[in-house]
Design a protein around this nucleic acid. Structure first.
Lengths: 157, 157
DNA sequence: GACTATAAGTTCCAAATAGGAACCAACTGT
DNA sequence: ACAGTTGGTTCCTATTTGGAACTTATAGTC
């Protein structure tokens, strides 16, 4: 199986990673959430080569995560903005960065600290059930297979 | 900048992705959370080539996400288990899969559904501040730069 | 004793992708 | 006329991936 074919799998994680799972792509999104919008700004901040950046921005745009909009005519110039769908990836970024803060910070501490505006404390995000509002721990989650793919996804052990 | 050097950046997300951001790695972790532990099981479920799998498992082990433990001697056989640090990545997997469920499900619906055991409803996870217990929206987060890297990370606009 | 199977890889080669640098198009400003 | 800006594309080389075969150590079967 080639990496470029993983979007064919009956797995939401695989399909998501087909759009945002390539090397560099999540760093592009990090910068999107910081307000970066232009090709050259991404390129300078990331240090990625221009044609890799071009490819990643194209995949993100085709995947509906970014929107390529003209910000001027003559000469025509475009910038990339997060769509509503793209903004919903923020929790992923937060949890990834938080994991890095906790486990990979060097001697100078975490490069960035996120604060919860309402209570003013450094944010330690966790999962919450939007239905009942309770905190959700991994063991509180029960996974059920769609009958259409019965036996193909879950490990039977 | 080469992808393999991104762990040098003053960014927790970049450092995290240096361990788990390669192609295939998050799918390996998905299977870990489903209880897969053995090389050949990962290989068959993922369809990834053996030497890429070997490389990813080594990086995850060196990064402290997985633990390689012998489950028998003669012949010596190892399996891979999530460490406590690795288990803390579960929220990342949940949010990624949830995003795929919502935006990329095909005609047969989401392959897996996660339920919140306590309330019995399909889980729609969101961020919660572990300090005050409130729901956290993206706009509720204020980011502050560590003075050591002042001006190097945030976009000034 | 010879053969087959199992598990966890390693090795080999061709094909695809990434890194680095230069180039291009369509303007604007000096 | 010439340099600068923006958003790429093109070229070449180096690294990584995909696919398949091979290896090692042992257990079980004929």
């Amino acid at each position: 199986m080639r990496w470029q074919d993983i979007d064919q799998q009956p797995c939401s994680l695989a399909r998501t990673l087909a759009i945002i799972g390539d090397n560099w792509t999540l760093l592009v999104l990090r910068d999107c959430f910081m307000g970066v919008r232009r090709f050259d700004d991404f390129q300078q901040r990331l240090g990625v080569t221009r044609h890799v950046l071009s490819d990643r921005l194209r995949k993100l745009t085709e995947g509906g995560v970014l929107d390529k909009v003209a910000y001027q005519e003559r000469p025509l110039r475009h910038e990339y903005r997060l769509t509503a769908m793209g903004k919903e990836l923020y929790p992923v970024i937060v949890h990834l960065a938080q994991w890095g803060d906790k486990h990979l910070a060097g001697e100078h501490g975490a490069p960035l600290t996120r604060y919860h505006r309402q209570c003013g404390e450094p944010l330690e995000a966790q999962l919450q059930c939007s239905h009942c509002g309770d905190t959700v721990k991994p063991t509180d989650i029960r996974v059920e297979e769609n009958p259409y793919w019965a036996g193909q996804i879950l490990v039977n052990s």
